Amino acid sequence: MTEPTPRRRLSADDRRAEISHAARSLFATNGYHATTTRELARAAGVSDALLYRHFANKRDLLEFVVTEAIETFSSLPPLERMEALPTDQLLLRLGHGFLERITANLDLILILVGNHAEVQDARFASFIDSAASALGEQLAQRGVAKNADEGYLSARSFFGSLISFILLQRVLGMDSVRPVDSGRYLEHLVELTVKGA
Rank of each mutant, 00 (worst) to 15 (best):
L106G: 15
S47H: 08
M82R: 10
I111A: 07
V177N: 00
S126P: 00
G183E: 15
N147W: 02
P77F: 05
F64K: 10
V144S: 06
G196F: 06
F158N: 03
I70N: 07
L85G: 07
R81F: 11
V177I: 14
A44V: 09
D48V: 07
F158H: 04
L192E: 13
T87N: 01
Q89D: 13
T103P: 04
A44Y: 10
T29Q: 14
G196Y: 08
L90G: 02
D121H: 09
P4V: 01
L79E: 12
D181W: 08
V144C: 07
L40T: 10
Y152F: 13
S126T: 13
A34S: 15
N57A: 09
L108P: 05
N147S: 07
R15D: 01
Q138D: 04
K58V: 02
A122F: 03
V119T: 09
F64M: 00
S20T: 15
A131M: 11
E150P: 00
M1K: 11
L168E: 15
I70S: 02
L139M: 11
D181I: 11
V190P: 10
S182A: 15
A125N: 05
L186I: 11
L106A: 11
A17I: 01
L76T: 09
G45W: 13
I70K: 02
T5H: 10
D121E: 12
L99C: 07
L110P: 00
V119H: 04
A122Y: 03
G97D: 13
H116C: 08
L135S: 09
A122R: 11
L91R: 08
R42K: 14
T67I: 03
D181M: 06
F55V: 08
G31E: 02
R16I: 02
H54I: 02
A140E: 02
M82N: 09
L106R: 10
R184I: 09
R123D: 02
A56L: 11
R16W: 02
G95E: 10
L62Y: 06
T35Y: 06
S161D: 01
H33C: 05
D88A: 15
L168Y: 13
R38W: 03
F98T: 02
R8T: 12
L139H: 08
A131Q: 14
L92E: 12
L79T: 13
A148F: 00
D149Y: 03
I109W: 01
H33L: 15
P77S: 13
A41T: 08
R42D: 13
D13R: 12
H54W: 03
E63L: 04
P6D: 09
L10R: 13
L168D: 15
Q141R: 14
T193E: 05
A122S: 12
R101F: 00
A84P: 00
D14R: 14
S25W: 01
Q169G: 05
F165I: 03
E18N: 10
R142G: 06
G114S: 05
F165S: 07
V113I: 14
A34L: 14
S161Q: 04
M1R: 11
S182C: 06
A84I: 05
D48R: 14
L189A: 12
A28L: 07
E150R: 12
E39R: 13
A84L: 08
I166H: 09
L85S: 06
E150Q: 12
E118I: 00
V171P: 07
P86M: 02
L108E: 08
N57D: 15
Y32W: 14
S11K: 10
